[in-house]
Design a protein around this nucleic acid. Structure first.
Lengths: 231, 231
DNA sequence: ACTACGGATTAGATACGTCTAAAGTAAATA
DNA sequence: TATTTACTTTAGACGTATCTAATCCGTAGT
């Protein structure tokens, strides 16, 4: 059996591999989980003993197939719970993350199955992040475009708003930026400011946000809004 | 902050006080939680340091007001979760206990509030056990009657079927004995066997079960079935 | 190729929750 | 009252997850 903490490490390594590619460095994991480097070293040794990661000393660590499967299952739990909290308990999308973190390690396989069924086997969570399927295949990130790559006049739909802190999410929700939101890019100001039109209102977004806000053209592709809202 | 384990001890002591009255002995707790006596001794010392129990060495232990409040909150979480699992995820009533045990320590106050609201602030869980209110006052056990105290010919409704193992609960559910079930006591056989009529079928229950199966007259009182089923 | 620096690992400590073995206490029995 | 017995507590140990302090690579710069 795997402890909650081990699952957290695997989840962290999975996310960091996605972000920076393997191998993942000790200090990167330490920052991400808010522990010290020696703690990480001793933990990854244990994970290595269990065949969940491969490790090269002083170089870094990489998930094995088994380790990845565990990480993906935790991610599935997390995102199903987020979808449940938003759809059935009326949580705002900026509130779901912490609650899902607390519960993701403690739900049974049975609960996972029944919850997925109840939600109608959703494929994205309230942030627009893909929910891994029951087969636990790692979801490939749909290579979406980013707001900053678009031109003035483009009409777009927000696809995904992830990996931000609560304050930022809350602000974006306030001004109407959520998965499914339709917007028009009206100005890319030379000072690094993007202005978009949402429901007739001007919304100003700094470059840093525009560079990570995933969008797709307003008229094509699956309707994410639908998938998020149902069940 | 209180660990999960500490909450489990407080919950156990609460239940055992209810069952046998205080003080609760070390070995009783050890049996109930499936740990050894020295483990219990060291744990209750820690609980005493935090003012959650009062302890007299070699005598036993008793919850303080604070300790009781914690126990009641855990119990509220547990029973709300049981009600949710049965009402919204179609769990059978014999399956809800273990899942609720795993989750009860990890839901936030906010989750508790929203869940209670969603369920319509239920007052009993799927076993007919009372759910403590948000005020965390210890629920007083409604002094119900027990099947064994009734006479042949009495028409009754099952009020509560609790504190049994999964196999027993599953069997009782199979033969139709659940909170809300209407039945007629047709025979009290001298070999210590009770025969009841449920939906036209004879069901045989040994004395031990009849002595703990809580019932109320078929025609009076609140409709428990209603309370359990809604939301 | 040498050195210095940043990051990683080893060493050793702590808190928690658990155990077994040994010692202590209280209550029942003779 | 003396003794036995059942239960409780003390003593000491272990595994997990964490820390700080000290040591040890590896590489970037000279």
């Amino acid at each position: 059996m795997l402890s909650d903490v081990m699952e957290d490490y695997l989840k962290a390594i999975y996310a960091l591999e996605r972000e920076h590619g393997p191998p993942v460095k000790t200090s990167t994991i330490a920052d991400h989980l808010d522990v010290t480097s020696p703690t990480v070293t001793s933990m990854v040794e244990k994970l290595e003993d269990r065949g969940l990661v491969e490790r090269e000393k002083y170089k870094g660590v990489e998930l094995t197939a088994d380790g990845e499967t565990v990480a993906v299952e935790v991610l599935r739990h997390h995102r199903l719970l987020e979808a449940f909290l938003a759809d059935h308990l009326d949580y705002e999308w900026d509130e779901v993350h912490d609650e899902a973190d607390a519960l993701e390690h403690h739900i049974s396989e049975e609960f996972e199955r029944r919850l997925a069924r109840k939600l109608g086997d959703p494929t994205v969570d309230p942030h627009g992040d893909p929910i891994p399927g029951a087969d636990l295949e790692p979801p490939e990130d749909p290579d979406t475009e980013v707001l900053a790559d678009h031109d003035e006049g483009d009409r777009l739909v927000v696809a995904r708003v992830s990996d931000r802190n609560d304050d930022e999410l809350r602000y974006l929700a306030d001004v109407g930026v959520q998965p499914g939101t339709e917007l028009e890019l009206v100005e890319h100001a030379p000072i690094g400011m993007f202005v978009v039109h949402i429901d007739g209102e001007d919304v100003h977004l700094p470059e840093r946000v525009a560079e990570t806000l995933e969008v797709r053209p307003a008229d094509t592709g699956a309707d994410v809004d639908q998938e998020v809202a149902d069940a």
